[in-house]
Design a protein around this nucleic acid. Structure first.
Lengths: 243, 243
DNA sequence: TACACAAAAATTGTTCAACACTCTGGACAG
DNA sequence: CTGTCCAGAGTGTTGAACAATTTTTGTGTA
Protein backbone atom coordinates (compact mmCIF):
# COMPACT_ATOMS: atom_id res chain seq x y z
CA UNK A 1 0.00 0.00 0.00
CA UNK A 2 0.88 3.65 0.06
CA UNK A 3 2.60 3.58 -3.29
CA UNK A 4 5.47 5.92 -3.82
CA UNK A 5 4.54 9.41 -4.89
CA UNK A 6 5.09 10.20 -8.57
CA UNK A 7 7.94 12.43 -7.49
CA UNK A 8 6.55 15.58 -8.98
CA UNK A 9 8.26 18.92 -8.53
CA UNK A 10 11.97 19.46 -8.29
CA UNK A 11 13.31 21.81 -5.70
CA UNK A 12 15.52 24.19 -7.60
CA UNK A 13 17.34 24.56 -4.35
CA UNK A 14 21.00 23.74 -4.70
CA UNK A 15 22.22 20.88 -2.57
CA UNK A 16 23.37 22.74 0.48
CA UNK A 17 25.61 20.24 2.21
CA UNK A 18 28.67 21.54 0.40
CA UNK A 19 31.62 19.29 -0.34
CA UNK A 20 30.34 17.69 -3.48
CA UNK A 21 33.85 16.53 -3.61
CA UNK A 22 34.34 13.70 -6.05
CA UNK A 23 32.24 15.23 -8.77
CA UNK A 24 32.66 12.01 -10.68
CA UNK A 25 29.01 11.71 -11.64
CA UNK A 26 26.68 14.61 -12.19
CA UNK A 27 24.50 15.49 -9.21
CA UNK A 28 21.39 13.47 -9.93
CA UNK A 29 17.99 15.11 -9.77
CA UNK A 30 16.72 12.05 -7.91
CA UNK A 31 14.99 13.26 -4.81
CA UNK A 32 14.07 11.23 -1.82
CA UNK A 33 10.58 11.41 -0.40
CA UNK A 34 11.85 13.10 2.73
CA UNK A 35 13.40 15.89 0.68
CA UNK A 36 10.22 16.36 -1.29
CA UNK A 37 8.15 16.65 1.83
CA UNK A 38 10.76 18.90 3.41
CA UNK A 39 10.32 21.23 0.48
CA UNK A 40 6.60 21.37 1.10
CA UNK A 41 6.96 22.03 4.81
CA UNK A 42 9.59 24.65 4.08
CA UNK A 43 7.11 26.45 1.87
CA UNK A 44 4.53 26.34 4.61
CA UNK A 45 6.96 27.82 7.07
CA UNK A 46 8.28 30.70 5.01
CA UNK A 47 4.83 31.49 3.63
CA UNK A 48 3.53 31.83 7.15
CA UNK A 49 1.02 28.99 6.97
CA UNK A 50 2.87 27.53 9.93
CA UNK A 51 3.24 30.39 12.38
CA UNK A 52 6.52 30.80 14.29
CA UNK A 53 6.53 29.30 17.73
CA UNK A 54 3.78 26.81 17.02
CA UNK A 55 4.19 23.19 17.92
CA UNK A 56 4.32 20.57 15.16
CA UNK A 57 2.69 17.37 16.29
CA UNK A 58 4.12 14.29 14.65
CA UNK A 59 0.83 12.44 14.37
CA UNK A 60 -1.04 15.40 12.94
CA UNK A 61 1.57 16.08 10.28
CA UNK A 62 1.86 12.41 9.39
CA UNK A 63 -1.83 12.42 8.64
CA UNK A 64 -1.68 15.71 6.80
CA UNK A 65 1.31 14.98 4.62
CA UNK A 66 0.56 11.30 4.17
CA UNK A 67 3.96 10.03 5.22
CA UNK A 68 5.09 7.72 7.97
CA UNK A 69 6.44 8.93 11.24
CA UNK A 70 9.98 7.87 10.44
CA UNK A 71 10.01 9.80 7.21
CA UNK A 72 8.55 12.83 8.91
CA UNK A 73 11.33 12.75 11.45
CA UNK A 74 13.86 12.83 8.65
CA UNK A 75 12.05 15.87 7.35
CA UNK A 76 12.30 17.47 10.77
CA UNK A 77 15.98 16.69 10.86
CA UNK A 78 16.51 18.40 7.52
CA UNK A 79 14.61 21.53 8.44
CA UNK A 80 16.13 21.73 11.90
CA UNK A 81 19.59 21.79 10.36
CA UNK A 82 18.40 24.59 8.10
CA UNK A 83 17.32 26.57 11.12
CA UNK A 84 13.63 26.71 10.28
CA UNK A 85 12.57 24.28 12.97
CA UNK A 86 13.77 23.84 16.50
CA UNK A 87 13.95 20.71 18.65
CA UNK A 88 13.18 20.43 22.32
CA UNK A 89 14.03 17.11 23.87
CA UNK A 90 10.97 14.98 24.55
CA UNK A 91 8.73 17.88 23.65
CA UNK A 92 8.91 17.85 19.89
CA UNK A 93 9.63 20.38 17.18
CA UNK A 94 8.50 23.97 16.92
CA UNK A 95 8.68 26.54 14.16
CA UNK A 96 11.62 28.64 15.20
CA UNK A 97 10.81 32.21 16.10
CA UNK A 98 13.35 34.77 14.97
CA UNK A 99 14.22 37.24 17.69
CA UNK A 100 15.75 40.69 17.53
CA UNK A 101 19.17 39.18 18.05
CA UNK A 102 18.52 36.84 15.14
CA UNK A 103 17.82 39.77 12.86
CA UNK A 104 20.84 41.65 14.13
CA UNK A 105 23.08 38.67 13.56
CA UNK A 106 21.69 38.06 10.09
CA UNK A 107 22.45 41.62 9.05
CA UNK A 108 25.85 41.53 10.67
CA UNK A 109 26.67 38.49 8.57
CA UNK A 110 25.24 40.12 5.48
CA UNK A 111 27.35 43.25 5.85
CA UNK A 112 30.36 41.13 6.63
CA UNK A 113 30.06 38.90 3.59
CA UNK A 114 28.29 40.93 0.93
CA UNK A 115 30.39 44.06 1.32
CA UNK A 116 33.67 42.18 1.11
CA UNK A 117 32.49 40.17 -1.85
CA UNK A 118 31.42 43.29 -3.67
CA UNK A 119 34.52 45.27 -2.81
CA UNK A 120 36.86 42.72 -4.32
CA UNK A 121 34.66 41.90 -7.30
CA UNK A 122 35.62 42.12 -10.91
CA UNK A 123 32.99 44.02 -12.99
CA UNK A 124 32.96 41.39 -15.73
CA UNK A 125 32.29 38.51 -13.40
CA UNK A 126 29.29 36.40 -14.51
CA UNK A 127 27.64 37.16 -11.19
CA UNK A 128 27.16 40.70 -12.44
CA UNK A 129 24.79 39.47 -15.11
CA UNK A 130 22.75 37.66 -12.53
CA UNK A 131 22.58 40.86 -10.54
CA UNK A 132 21.32 42.69 -13.62
CA UNK A 133 18.70 40.00 -14.20
CA UNK A 134 17.50 40.30 -10.62
CA UNK A 135 17.22 44.09 -10.77
CA UNK A 136 15.23 43.98 -13.99
CA UNK A 137 13.05 41.25 -12.58
CA UNK A 138 12.36 43.31 -9.48
CA UNK A 139 11.24 46.26 -11.60
CA UNK A 140 8.96 44.04 -13.64
CA UNK A 141 7.40 42.59 -10.51
CA UNK A 142 6.90 46.05 -9.03
CA UNK A 143 5.04 47.18 -12.14
CA UNK A 144 2.81 44.14 -11.83
CA UNK A 145 2.27 44.73 -8.14
CA UNK A 146 3.74 41.33 -7.36
CA UNK A 147 5.47 42.16 -4.09
CA UNK A 148 6.35 38.58 -3.22
CA UNK A 149 8.18 38.45 -6.53
CA UNK A 150 10.00 41.64 -5.60
CA UNK A 151 11.15 39.97 -2.40
CA UNK A 152 12.45 36.94 -4.27
CA UNK A 153 14.25 39.14 -6.78
CA UNK A 154 15.85 41.09 -3.95
CA UNK A 155 17.17 37.93 -2.34
CA UNK A 156 18.44 36.65 -5.64
CA UNK A 157 20.22 39.96 -6.27
CA UNK A 158 22.12 39.67 -3.02
CA UNK A 159 22.86 36.00 -3.57
CA UNK A 160 24.45 37.03 -6.84
CA UNK A 161 26.64 39.47 -4.94
CA UNK A 162 27.92 36.67 -2.76
CA UNK A 163 28.64 34.57 -5.83
CA UNK A 164 31.11 37.21 -6.91
CA UNK A 165 33.41 35.66 -4.33
CA UNK A 166 33.47 32.40 -6.33
CA UNK A 167 33.15 30.21 -3.29
CA UNK A 168 30.59 27.37 -3.27
CA UNK A 169 30.75 27.10 0.50
CA UNK A 170 30.17 30.79 1.01
CA UNK A 171 27.24 30.77 -1.38
CA UNK A 172 25.68 27.80 0.33
CA UNK A 173 26.08 29.47 3.71
CA UNK A 174 24.47 32.59 2.38
CA UNK A 175 21.56 30.51 1.11
CA UNK A 176 20.98 29.48 4.71
CA UNK A 177 21.02 33.05 5.86
CA UNK A 178 18.56 34.03 3.15
CA UNK A 179 16.25 31.28 4.28
CA UNK A 180 16.22 32.61 7.81
CA UNK A 181 15.63 36.07 6.50
CA UNK A 182 12.64 34.80 4.59
CA UNK A 183 11.28 33.50 7.87
CA UNK A 184 11.57 36.99 9.27
CA UNK A 185 9.85 38.47 6.23
CA UNK A 186 7.04 35.97 6.66
CA UNK A 187 6.58 37.18 10.19
CA UNK A 188 6.23 40.75 8.99
CA UNK A 189 3.25 41.87 7.02
CA UNK A 190 3.05 44.32 4.18
CA UNK A 191 5.75 43.28 1.69
CA UNK A 192 5.24 46.43 -0.35
CA UNK A 193 6.30 48.52 2.57
CA UNK A 194 9.20 46.12 3.19
CA UNK A 195 10.71 45.81 -0.24
CA UNK A 196 9.46 48.84 -2.07
CA UNK A 197 12.05 51.39 -0.96
CA UNK A 198 14.99 49.15 -1.70
CA UNK A 199 14.56 48.26 -5.34
CA UNK A 200 16.17 51.38 -6.70
CA UNK A 201 19.10 51.18 -4.35
CA UNK A 202 19.97 47.76 -5.72
CA UNK A 203 20.03 49.34 -9.15
CA UNK A 204 22.39 52.08 -8.03
CA UNK A 205 24.77 49.60 -6.49
CA UNK A 206 24.82 47.60 -9.68
CA UNK A 207 25.51 50.74 -11.72
CA UNK A 208 28.57 51.51 -9.64
CA UNK A 209 29.87 47.99 -10.03
CA UNK A 210 29.29 47.94 -13.78
CA UNK A 211 31.21 51.20 -14.01
CA UNK A 212 34.16 49.52 -12.31
CA UNK A 213 33.84 51.43 -9.05
CA UNK A 214 33.55 48.39 -6.81
CA UNK A 215 34.70 50.36 -3.78
CA UNK A 216 31.88 52.85 -4.11
CA UNK A 217 29.46 50.01 -4.73
CA UNK A 218 30.52 48.36 -1.50
CA UNK A 219 30.02 51.59 0.41
CA UNK A 220 26.53 52.02 -0.96
CA UNK A 221 25.78 48.42 -0.12
CA UNK A 222 26.85 48.89 3.47
CA UNK A 223 24.64 51.94 3.81
CA UNK A 224 21.81 49.98 2.25
CA UNK A 225 22.21 47.12 4.67
CA UNK A 226 22.37 49.36 7.72
CA UNK A 227 19.22 51.12 6.62
CA UNK A 228 17.45 47.86 5.85
CA UNK A 229 18.37 46.46 9.24
CA UNK A 230 16.88 49.43 11.07
CA UNK A 231 13.86 49.18 8.86
CA UNK A 232 13.27 45.49 9.59
CA UNK A 233 13.95 45.90 13.29
CA UNK A 234 11.40 48.67 13.45
CA UNK A 235 8.77 46.62 11.67
CA UNK A 236 9.57 43.69 13.93
CA UNK A 237 9.19 45.78 17.06
CA UNK A 238 5.75 46.84 15.91
CA UNK A 239 4.65 43.24 15.30
CA UNK A 240 6.20 41.67 18.41
CA UNK A 241 6.82 44.46 20.90
CA UNK A 242 7.54 42.07 23.76
CA UNK A 243 10.50 40.19 22.34
CA UNK B 1 15.16 -5.53 25.07
CA UNK B 2 17.97 -3.39 23.82
CA UNK B 3 17.94 -1.11 26.82
CA UNK B 4 18.82 2.52 26.26
CA UNK B 5 22.47 3.36 26.50
CA UNK B 6 23.50 5.23 29.67
CA UNK B 7 24.17 8.25 27.50
CA UNK B 8 27.76 8.63 28.48
CA UNK B 9 29.96 11.35 27.02
CA UNK B 10 28.83 14.80 26.08
CA UNK B 11 30.04 16.34 22.89
CA UNK B 12 31.37 19.72 23.82
CA UNK B 13 30.46 20.69 20.30
CA UNK B 14 28.21 23.71 20.20
CA UNK B 15 24.81 23.14 18.69
CA UNK B 16 25.44 24.14 15.12
CA UNK B 17 21.97 24.56 13.68
CA UNK B 18 21.94 28.24 14.53
CA UNK B 19 18.74 30.10 15.25
CA UNK B 20 18.44 29.24 18.90
CA UNK B 21 15.90 31.92 18.75
CA UNK B 22 13.48 31.91 21.62
CA UNK B 23 16.05 31.36 24.28
CA UNK B 24 13.21 31.00 26.74
CA UNK B 25 14.70 27.99 28.48
CA UNK B 26 18.38 27.28 28.67
CA UNK B 27 19.67 24.99 25.93
CA UNK B 28 19.54 21.64 27.66
CA UNK B 29 22.53 19.36 27.58
CA UNK B 30 20.18 16.50 26.71
CA UNK B 31 21.57 14.73 23.73
CA UNK B 32 19.68 12.38 21.53
CA UNK B 33 21.11 8.99 20.75
CA UNK B 34 21.65 9.98 17.15
CA UNK B 35 23.83 12.92 18.16
CA UNK B 36 25.88 10.74 20.46
CA UNK B 37 26.49 8.20 17.76
CA UNK B 38 27.16 10.96 15.25
CA UNK B 39 29.91 12.18 17.53
CA UNK B 40 31.50 8.75 17.50
CA UNK B 41 31.31 8.38 13.74
CA UNK B 42 32.67 11.90 13.33
CA UNK B 43 35.68 10.93 15.38
CA UNK B 44 36.22 7.87 13.22
CA UNK B 45 36.09 9.98 10.09
CA UNK B 46 38.41 12.77 11.10
CA UNK B 47 40.82 10.36 12.77
CA UNK B 48 41.11 8.44 9.53
CA UNK B 49 39.67 5.17 10.86
CA UNK B 50 37.09 5.49 8.12
CA UNK B 51 39.06 6.27 4.98
CA UNK B 52 37.70 8.84 2.52
CA UNK B 53 35.76 7.40 -0.35
CA UNK B 54 34.83 4.21 1.46
CA UNK B 55 31.27 3.01 1.47
CA UNK B 56 29.37 2.87 4.76
CA UNK B 57 26.95 -0.02 4.75
CA UNK B 58 23.90 0.56 6.89
CA UNK B 59 23.66 -3.01 8.10
CA UNK B 60 27.31 -3.28 8.99
CA UNK B 61 27.34 -0.05 10.95
CA UNK B 62 24.09 -0.90 12.70
CA UNK B 63 25.76 -4.01 14.01
CA UNK B 64 28.97 -2.22 14.89
CA UNK B 65 27.45 0.75 16.69
CA UNK B 66 24.55 -1.16 18.20
CA UNK B 67 21.82 1.15 16.96
CA UNK B 68 18.83 0.62 14.72
CA UNK B 69 18.81 1.42 11.07
CA UNK B 70 16.51 4.39 11.55
CA UNK B 71 18.77 5.98 14.12
CA UNK B 72 21.79 5.37 11.95
CA UNK B 73 20.08 7.16 9.08
CA UNK B 74 19.57 10.16 11.31
CA UNK B 75 23.26 10.03 12.06
CA UNK B 76 24.04 9.95 8.35
CA UNK B 77 21.75 12.91 7.84
CA UNK B 78 23.64 14.90 10.46
CA UNK B 79 27.07 14.13 9.12
CA UNK B 80 26.02 14.70 5.53
CA UNK B 81 24.90 18.21 6.40
CA UNK B 82 28.28 18.74 8.03
CA UNK B 83 29.99 17.73 4.83
CA UNK B 84 31.79 14.70 6.22
CA UNK B 85 29.59 12.17 4.46
CA UNK B 86 28.10 12.14 1.01
CA UNK B 87 24.86 10.59 -0.22
CA UNK B 88 24.27 8.83 -3.48
CA UNK B 89 20.67 7.96 -4.18
CA UNK B 90 19.96 4.28 -3.75
CA UNK B 91 23.63 3.59 -3.31
CA UNK B 92 24.20 4.74 0.21
CA UNK B 93 26.64 7.02 1.98
CA UNK B 94 30.35 7.39 1.47
CA UNK B 95 33.03 9.21 3.39
CA UNK B 96 33.48 12.35 1.35
CA UNK B 97 36.86 12.73 -0.25
CA UNK B 98 38.23 16.26 -0.25
CA UNK B 99 39.56 17.28 -3.62
CA UNK B 100 41.94 20.03 -4.61
CA UNK B 101 39.02 22.32 -5.28
CA UNK B 102 37.72 21.57 -1.79
CA UNK B 103 40.98 22.71 -0.25
CA UNK B 104 41.09 25.79 -2.45
CA UNK B 105 37.56 26.73 -1.49
CA UNK B 106 38.21 26.17 2.20
CA UNK B 107 41.17 28.52 2.13
CA UNK B 108 39.32 31.06 0.06
CA UNK B 109 36.63 31.13 2.72
CA UNK B 110 39.20 31.32 5.48
CA UNK B 111 40.94 34.31 3.94
CA UNK B 112 37.62 35.92 3.27
CA UNK B 113 36.31 35.58 6.78
CA UNK B 114 39.30 35.51 9.07
CA UNK B 115 41.06 38.48 7.54
CA UNK B 116 37.99 40.71 7.69
CA UNK B 117 37.22 39.65 11.23
CA UNK B 118 40.76 40.40 12.32
CA UNK B 119 40.97 43.70 10.48
CA UNK B 120 37.95 45.14 12.18
CA UNK B 121 38.68 43.65 15.58
CA UNK B 122 39.04 45.52 18.81
CA UNK B 123 42.22 44.53 20.69
CA UNK B 124 40.39 44.17 24.00
CA UNK B 125 37.78 41.82 22.67
CA UNK B 126 37.45 38.66 24.78
CA UNK B 127 38.28 36.62 21.69
CA UNK B 128 41.82 37.94 22.02
CA UNK B 129 42.23 36.07 25.28
CA UNK B 130 41.12 32.87 23.64
CA UNK B 131 43.69 33.46 20.94
CA UNK B 132 46.36 33.90 23.59
CA UNK B 133 45.27 30.67 25.27
CA UNK B 134 45.46 28.79 22.00
CA UNK B 135 48.93 30.08 21.19
CA UNK B 136 50.27 29.13 24.59
CA UNK B 137 48.60 25.76 24.34
CA UNK B 138 50.19 25.15 20.97
CA UNK B 139 53.64 25.89 22.39
CA UNK B 140 53.05 23.53 25.29
CA UNK B 141 51.95 20.77 22.94
CA UNK B 142 54.96 21.31 20.72
CA UNK B 143 57.31 20.94 23.69
CA UNK B 144 55.56 17.71 24.57
CA UNK B 145 55.71 16.47 21.00
CA UNK B 146 51.93 16.24 20.91
CA UNK B 147 51.33 17.21 17.31
CA UNK B 148 47.67 16.34 17.28
CA UNK B 149 47.29 18.78 20.14
CA UNK B 150 49.12 21.39 18.12
CA UNK B 151 46.63 20.91 15.32
CA UNK B 152 43.70 21.35 17.68
CA UNK B 153 45.23 24.47 19.19
CA UNK B 154 45.77 25.89 15.73
CA UNK B 155 42.15 25.39 14.81
CA UNK B 156 40.99 26.87 18.09
CA UNK B 157 43.23 29.91 17.49
CA UNK B 158 41.59 30.61 14.18
CA UNK B 159 38.12 29.95 15.55
CA UNK B 160 38.87 32.62 18.12
CA UNK B 161 39.73 35.02 15.31
CA UNK B 162 36.32 34.47 13.76
CA UNK B 163 34.67 35.07 17.12
CA UNK B 164 36.07 38.56 17.03
CA UNK B 165 33.25 39.31 14.62
CA UNK B 166 30.70 38.59 17.36
CA UNK B 167 28.40 36.64 15.09
CA UNK B 168 27.06 33.25 16.23
CA UNK B 169 26.12 32.31 12.69
CA UNK B 170 29.53 33.13 11.34
CA UNK B 171 31.22 31.16 14.09
CA UNK B 172 29.02 28.16 13.49
CA UNK B 173 29.75 28.30 9.79
CA UNK B 174 33.43 28.47 10.51
CA UNK B 175 33.11 25.41 12.72
CA UNK B 176 31.88 23.55 9.66
CA UNK B 177 34.81 24.73 7.63
CA UNK B 178 37.21 23.65 10.37
CA UNK B 179 35.63 20.23 10.40
CA UNK B 180 36.22 19.80 6.70
CA UNK B 181 39.75 21.00 7.14
CA UNK B 182 40.27 18.34 9.77
CA UNK B 183 39.18 15.78 7.22
CA UNK B 184 41.89 17.04 4.92
CA UNK B 185 44.44 16.89 7.71
CA UNK B 186 43.41 13.32 8.41
CA UNK B 187 44.10 12.47 4.79
CA UNK B 188 47.59 13.90 5.07
CA UNK B 189 50.19 12.20 7.17
CA UNK B 190 52.91 13.73 9.27
CA UNK B 191 51.20 16.36 11.46
CA UNK B 192 54.55 17.67 12.66
CA UNK B 193 55.46 18.65 9.15
CA UNK B 194 51.96 20.12 8.71
CA UNK B 195 51.60 22.24 11.81
CA UNK B 196 55.13 22.81 12.96
CA UNK B 197 56.03 25.81 10.81
CA UNK B 198 52.88 27.73 11.61
CA UNK B 199 52.88 27.95 15.37
CA UNK B 200 55.15 30.96 15.58
CA UNK B 201 53.27 32.85 12.91
CA UNK B 202 50.12 32.63 14.98
CA UNK B 203 52.06 34.19 17.81
CA UNK B 204 53.22 37.06 15.63
CA UNK B 205 49.71 37.77 14.43
CA UNK B 206 48.47 37.87 17.98
CA UNK B 207 51.25 40.23 18.97
CA UNK B 208 50.23 42.69 16.29
CA UNK B 209 46.63 42.56 17.38
CA UNK B 210 47.47 43.01 21.04
CA UNK B 211 49.51 46.05 20.09
CA UNK B 212 46.45 47.54 18.43
CA UNK B 213 47.73 47.16 14.89
CA UNK B 214 44.82 45.13 13.61
CA UNK B 215 45.54 46.13 10.02
CA UNK B 216 49.03 44.71 10.15
CA UNK B 217 47.71 41.61 11.87
CA UNK B 218 45.25 41.05 9.05
CA UNK B 219 48.00 41.37 6.47
CA UNK B 220 50.14 38.83 8.24
CA UNK B 221 47.18 36.53 8.52
CA UNK B 222 46.52 36.71 4.81
CA UNK B 223 50.14 35.90 4.05
CA UNK B 224 49.93 33.04 6.51
CA UNK B 225 46.82 31.61 4.89
CA UNK B 226 48.22 31.85 1.38
CA UNK B 227 51.35 30.05 2.48
CA UNK B 228 49.39 27.40 4.36
CA UNK B 229 47.21 26.77 1.35
CA UNK B 230 50.18 26.18 -0.92
CA UNK B 231 51.66 23.97 1.75
CA UNK B 232 48.55 21.83 2.11
CA UNK B 233 48.01 21.61 -1.62
CA UNK B 234 51.54 20.41 -2.08
CA UNK B 235 51.19 17.75 0.57
CA UNK B 236 47.88 16.71 -0.94
CA UNK B 237 49.37 16.36 -4.40
CA UNK B 238 52.00 14.03 -3.02
CA UNK B 239 49.42 11.84 -1.32
CA UNK B 240 46.84 11.78 -4.12
CA UNK B 241 48.57 12.76 -7.34
CA UNK B 242 45.64 11.70 -9.51
CA UNK B 243 42.91 13.94 -8.13
C1' DT C 1 -10.09 28.05 47.70
C1' DA C 2 -5.31 27.04 47.20
C1' DC C 3 -1.54 23.82 47.08
C1' DA C 4 1.12 19.57 46.93
C1' DC C 5 1.36 15.00 45.26
C1' DA C 6 0.24 10.76 42.68
C1' DA C 7 -2.00 8.33 38.83
C1' DA C 8 -3.34 8.49 33.95
C1' DA C 9 -3.05 10.08 29.27
C1' DA C 10 -0.57 11.92 25.49
C1' DT C 11 3.65 12.51 23.00
C1' DT C 12 8.22 11.70 21.79
C1' DG C 13 12.52 8.49 21.36
C1' DT C 14 14.00 4.18 19.58
C1' DT C 15 13.73 -0.32 17.66
C1' DC C 16 12.19 -3.95 14.58
C1' DA C 17 10.44 -6.54 10.65
C1' DA C 18 8.61 -6.23 6.27
C1' DC C 19 8.19 -4.83 1.52
C1' DA C 20 8.99 -1.74 -2.66
C1' DC C 21 12.31 0.15 -5.52
C1' DT C 22 16.93 0.71 -7.63
C1' DC C 23 21.48 -0.61 -8.85
C1' DT C 24 24.96 -4.16 -9.89
C1' DG C 25 26.92 -8.10 -11.91
C1' DG C 26 26.65 -12.36 -14.22
C1' DA C 27 24.32 -15.83 -17.37
C1' DC C 28 22.66 -16.51 -21.76
C1' DA C 29 20.87 -15.97 -26.49
C1' DG C 30 21.84 -13.76 -30.77
C1' DC D 1 31.18 -9.20 -28.79
C1' DT D 2 26.81 -7.13 -27.67
C1' DG D 3 22.32 -6.66 -25.66
C1' DT D 4 18.71 -8.60 -22.62
C1' DC D 5 17.08 -10.83 -18.70
C1' DC D 6 17.32 -12.33 -14.01
C1' DA D 7 18.62 -12.85 -9.27
C1' DG D 8 21.09 -10.77 -5.30
C1' DA D 9 22.28 -6.92 -2.49
C1' DG D 10 21.31 -2.60 -0.57
C1' DT D 11 18.67 1.44 0.09
C1' DG D 12 13.84 3.93 0.72
C1' DT D 13 9.68 3.78 3.24
C1' DT D 14 6.22 2.03 6.10
C1' DG D 15 3.49 0.46 10.25
C1' DA D 16 3.51 -1.34 14.64
C1' DA D 17 5.47 -1.86 19.07
C1' DC D 18 7.59 -0.54 23.48
C1' DA D 19 10.36 2.61 26.63
C1' DA D 20 10.96 7.17 28.54
C1' DT D 21 9.32 11.67 29.40
C1' DT D 22 6.15 15.38 29.60
C1' DT D 23 1.63 17.07 30.37
C1' DT D 24 -2.81 16.62 32.14
C1' DT D 25 -6.00 15.06 35.33
C1' DG D 26 -7.62 13.69 39.74
C1' DT D 27 -7.37 13.54 44.64
C1' DG D 28 -6.51 14.59 49.36
C1' DT D 29 -5.04 17.95 52.80
C1' DA D 30 -4.52 22.40 55.04
Amino acid sequence: MAARKPQGDETGYSNLGGSNATGSRAAEPVQTLAETVAERVREKVISGTLTPGSHLSEMVLCEELQVSRNTLREVFRILTKEGLLRYEANRGVFVSTPSMSTIIDIYRVRRFIECSALAQAHPRHPGTQRMRLAVDDAHRCREAGNWLGVGSADISFHSAIVELADSPRLSSFYAHISLELRLVFGLLQDPEFLHGPFIDQNGEILLELEAGRSGAAAEKLEAYLLRAERFILGAYARVAPSA
